[in-house]
Design a protein around this nucleic acid. Structure first.
Lengths: 239, 239
DNA sequence: CGAGGTCTTGAAGACGATCAACAAACGTGG
DNA sequence: CCACGTTTGTTGATCGTCTTCAAGACCTCG
């Protein structure tokens, strides 16, 4: 079940046989969640970190007025909750957009990895650094991009990240989100998301059919959303 | 010079004598920057990571239309650029709001720390996780808080973080930023920042005299900005 | 078939941006 | 020490983006 993790890490740097084995030997427990059921909540102190194996999950906080803000979107292979290993107390919640399968890794075993496998530790650290890089990119989008550009950026990011885990079909991919859920991600109202979708459609950049999205003009969409994939740090190199 | 780092880490967990020594033995090079001079730039591949010893620094990206978005604010003791140790390529730039003194730590030596000091490695990892937690908090603010609330939140955060490094005087602190610079942080226009400052003043929450800020009613300001310090993870506990 | 969720459209209004002008503070050089 | 230019803070007016409210169309599923 941790094959996804190995794959994801090996994309950024080579792992030794010993490291792959160390991962494979982690005593994971499988955890299933139906659509819309939270995995962990703000304030929790989890004893395990959760790796998303299948489905779409997200991290969020709700504002005082009850508006939800999504802080991160997660696709299969993402170590959704690795930071709780060291932060201890959750400063946000984790929810699911579809039925999800998680591999739960005990913190005690992660700790053992850090004691015995320095390079593997750096690779796990790296994966949390990439999460942070995505946070920063979203901050730029939230602060300085118009609504339609934010949406365009999100589509580029999701296509790129899904492609890495082989969940795209050319320029098409499944994004099982309603427009209301998109509005929680983009920090917009549902109505305005609808108008942005129509804008991108009208500009001929995407075809949006239910949950299936097809990018019609990648270069134009990336330009529209000021998307540059540097921040995803996809290069394979010694770390 | 790395005493600040030791202090900052020891706030979150105890360090052993060996760990403190390992830090003290790091061969740092001092680097000075005048106000407004960048330390590293988007696209760079630094060979050192920079710890801020003195002054105010920030990380930023500029949008295509030339608007700057600040992604993080840094106070003395912050390991501004630790992530470049593993990410390699900079996905943002680092600038200074005042004259700054940095301690530059070679990546090679950080790597040696990760090979020899697992717990210290976790502590360094932790400090990047806290950066990410602050990014997430800012995302919530940008997406779901009104302008004046965002400003209130920022003031609460800065007071809390400066207090930790002993740079507050009761409820007063120095924030050497112009309103234009604040607008880059909050994702607003300078004019609107001015109006928000006046709003908080009129509500009796803060006194703002040049670069000196005094919080008049902490509870009310925190309420106004939906500020809760959980996300700063200030507790001292085994990590 | 009916109920509920989702998408869509219109109209009104709020929030923040932009443009413009001026006052105050500051630093520099004469 | 003053004159001057520059930066910063402040205010007003106008405009655009996005929100909110409301209603109808469409779809799915029991």
């Amino acid at each position: 079940m941790l094959i996804h993790l190995i794959k994801k890490l090996e994309q950024r740097d080579r792992l030794t046989e010993a490291e792959r084995e160390a991962i494979a030997r982690l005593p994971v427990r499988e955890e299933l969640r139906l659509t819309g059921v939270d995995l962990v909540r703000l304030g929790d102190e989890p004893t395990h970190s959760s790796l998303l194996v299948e489905g779409f999950a997200y991290r969020y906080r709700d504002s005082a007025e009850g508006h939800r803000q999504v802080l991160a979107l997660h696709v299969p292979g993402d170590f959704v909750d690795l930071q709780s290993f060291l932060l201890k107390e959750m400063d946000h919640s984790v929810g699911t957009y579809t039925a999800c399968r998680f591999a739960m890794v005990p913190h005690a075993d992660l700790r053992r990895v850090t004691e015995e496998h320095p390079h593997l530790t750096r690779m796990l650290w790296l994966s949390t650094l990439i999460d942070a890089a995505i946070h920063r990119e979203w901050l730029l989008c939230m602060g300085r991009l118009q609504a339609a550009a934010r949406l365009a950026h999100l589509l580029c990011e999701m296509h790129t990240r899904l492609k890495v885990v082989d969940l795209t079909d050319g320029l098409s991919f499944e994004l099982p989100l309603t427009q209301a859920q998109l509005s929680d991600i983009l920090g917009l109202s549902p109505v305005h998301v609808n108008r942005c979708v129509q804008t991108l459609r009208a500009e001929g950049l995407v075809v949006w059919d239910g949950t299936t999205i097809t990018i019609k003009d990648w270069a134009a969409l990336a330009w529209r959303g000021e998307f540059d994939l540097t921040y995803l740090h996809l290069e394979n190199r010694p770390r």
